[in-house]
Simulated assay, not measured.
Amino acid sequence: MESNSTATKKQTISILGCGWYGLALAKRLVAEGYTVKGSSTSPEKMEILSSLGILPYLLNFQEEETANDPDFFKTDILVIAIPPKRSSAEQSTFLGKVQKIAALAQEQQIPQVIFISSTAVYGECNSEITASSTPMPDTASGKAMLETEQFLASLSFNTTILRFAGLIGPGRNPGRFFAGKQDIPNGQAPVNLLHQEDCVAFTLSLIEQAAFGVIYNVCSPDHPSRQAFYVKAAEQSKLPLPSFIDELLNWKIISGEPVHSSFNYQYRIADFSKWMDTHSL
């Protein structure tokens, strides 16, 4: 892991994909004094990005004929935050899209790339998983993510991989996930979740500490059962309560502790039950 105690807020950071996470990160980085370039595939979003102090770029790596502005890649740090969509077609072409992005990043000799991946690269292995555990994806999206991680790690720039757990936060109310459903299996399996607040704060802390070049699992240290968590989340949101079968089938616990202890981060939301008592979902 590279470390640099003289990291400065004069850096330029390009965020490829200003969606749910990317836009929240961009706003926080602007507030902290960074120059932020943000991309979207939507022309309508350009004005929104500009109004937030983000330099807007209309980029699309899905369409062959699109000419993407190389100025976006003149940056100190590139954050790739474009997860593959759920469709099998998108998952099968995801690596090709990232290969186009990587080619432009290499042309501009970007020193640092942060790739937002997922703990879907791990299968249900009935054990605790750390960032040094061997990935064994059992879903198409997990396989696409792992393949892309390995490709980026083979290139000339320094790649940092953030494997996010299941994402919750604004617009992703977990109370809605199972509201009203009955006899849901695997009720005693532990949850592996991450709030948007920690997504953003973890990334900011990583940048400020210049703790680049390794793989991080990013997951709340709290792992209540599916039954306990989702029933309380639905109750808190005044939604129909789900019911779970009281059983433990396949499961995993993702450890969000950094492999390198020199990187310091304290999760903001480390007890979901207490947090839900005082916050709306």
Rank of each mutant, 00 (worst) to 15 (best):
M276V: 01
F272T: 01
T8K: 05
L155A: 04
P43N: 10
W275S: 00
G187H: 05
A131S: 11
Y122D: 08
A233D: 07
L52C: 14
Q236A: 14
D277Q: 01
F178L: 12
Q196M: 14
A228R: 04
Q112M: 15
E32Q: 08
L155F: 10
E208M: 04
P170Y: 14
P70S: 09
H223R: 05
I54L: 10
Q11F: 12
L25T: 10
G171K: 13
W20V: 07
S40G: 01
L52R: 13
K232P: 00
E32H: 04
I13V: 15
I15G: 05
S156N: 03
T160S: 09
M145N: 06
K10S: 15
P190N: 08
F73L: 06
Y34E: 08
I161H: 03
R172T: 11
I110P: 04
S262A: 14
G256E: 11
S87N: 09
V218R: 01
K181D: 08
F244W: 01
A270E: 05
G213D: 06
A153K: 11
S14F: 05
I110L: 01
T35Y: 13
I80W: 04
V231I: 15
R163N: 02
S88W: 08
C219D: 04
E147L: 03
Q91E: 01
T75G: 03
L241E: 08
Q108C: 13
R163H: 02
A270Y: 09
I245K: 09
P135F: 06
V121C: 01
K238S: 12
S118M: 13
E235W: 02
S5A: 14
L206G: 00
K238C: 12
F164Q: 01
S42E: 10
Q108H: 13
K232H: 05
G123C: 04
G180R: 10
P135L: 03
R268A: 15
E147I: 00
P240T: 03
E247C: 10
P56D: 11
T160E: 04
F202A: 11
F272G: 02
P258C: 06
G123A: 06
Q236L: 12
P170E: 15
Q196P: 12
A211H: 13
F178T: 10
T93L: 15
P240L: 02
G169E: 06
M46V: 08
S273F: 14
T278W: 02
L95C: 12
T6R: 14
T66E: 14
C199P: 07
P224T: 01
L95R: 09
I269E: 11
P135E: 00
V113H: 07
Q91D: 09
I48N: 14
N173H: 12
Y265N: 13
E65V: 15
A228Y: 02
F72A: 07
Q106D: 12
Q182I: 13
A67K: 15
S87Y: 06
Q150F: 13
L162I: 01
Q188D: 12
A201E: 15
E107K: 14
P170I: 14
V79I: 10
